[in-house]
Design a protein around this nucleic acid. Structure first.
Lengths: 133, 133
DNA sequence: GGCTTAAAAGAAAATTATTTTCTTTTAAAA
DNA sequence: TTTTAAAAGAAAATAATTTTCTTTTAAGCC
């Protein structure tokens, strides 16, 4: 049983070939847009429907397997849910990377200042990557 | 001359009544969606077009007067550009607040780890506000 | 391994969000 | 005031996402 199949089972989702493919594409790319998922899926499943992508992405997000990351001035990407990390986007080439930066301090301070109980944090930075400078 | 008019002049945008209204609505609400801008605008300008809202919002964002904030699992909101701050969204009532938390440390660390030159940071937290607990 | 069935896929249409085009109106500079 | 480039508004076009409905299939059961 593949890793994707296992992930699906764990989240009580039927392991269809389309879903397995979606998960492995997300794993492979790290982050991927709906549009790119669809394009790549078409190569292997020429009759796949965009609705299938949307429905599956929504279900997987619902069940906590993946997450949507909204990117400033760009399309959303989807990623597998794993250890906390932040995102950095290159203004020049559009590349998105994860960085394992600790955000505990900020969250603690925000809780103190706001009185909120914080459940999740989204940090996205934009700038220029080393290759583009 | 109103404050909104002044802001528009500073950004070399013609001070039309619709634009002045958009800016004062953003100021008044702090953060506001396109949909709410349109609804409220209709009360004062019954023949306003959604295209006018979109075109103006895009121009104002382009010229650095306002900024779009993409919110996890919700519609984007727009805000005037001012001192750096982060956003906190209540899962329960949907309210969005600014908090003046310092993010310099995180940015410095991310720059070190990634090699990027960082230009802007977006931090959004989700949780439960004091009123909703 | 062949049934059964609830869930998923696919196709098409519907809905929602955003942008473009084109004509009329208007802010602002002369 | 007059002039004019830019903006507003209306309508259509495009893009993004969801819904509906029929057919297909994964997976539990014998």
């Amino acid at each position: 049983m593949t890793e994707s199949t296992l992930l699906l089972k764990e989240h009580h989702l039927k392991a269809t070939p389309q879903r397995i493919k979606i998960i492995s594409m997300i794993e492979e790319h790290g982050h991927i847009t709906i549009e790119d998922l669809y394009k790549e899926m078409l190569e292997q499943f020429p009759s796949v429907s965009l609705a299938t992508i949307y429905k599956n992405i929504n279900q997987m997000a619902q069940s906590g397997l993946i997450r949507e990351i909204k990117i400033p001035k760009a399309k959303s990407v989807f990623e597998l849910i794993k250890e906390p990390h932040l995102h950095i986007v290159c203004d020049s080439c559009g590349k998105i990377e994860d960085i394992p930066v600790e955000t505990e301090n900020i969250i603690k301070e925000a809780e103190k200042l706001s009185g909120y109980k914080i459940n999740e944090s989204f940090v996205t930075l934009r700038g220029t990557c080393p290759e583009c400078r």
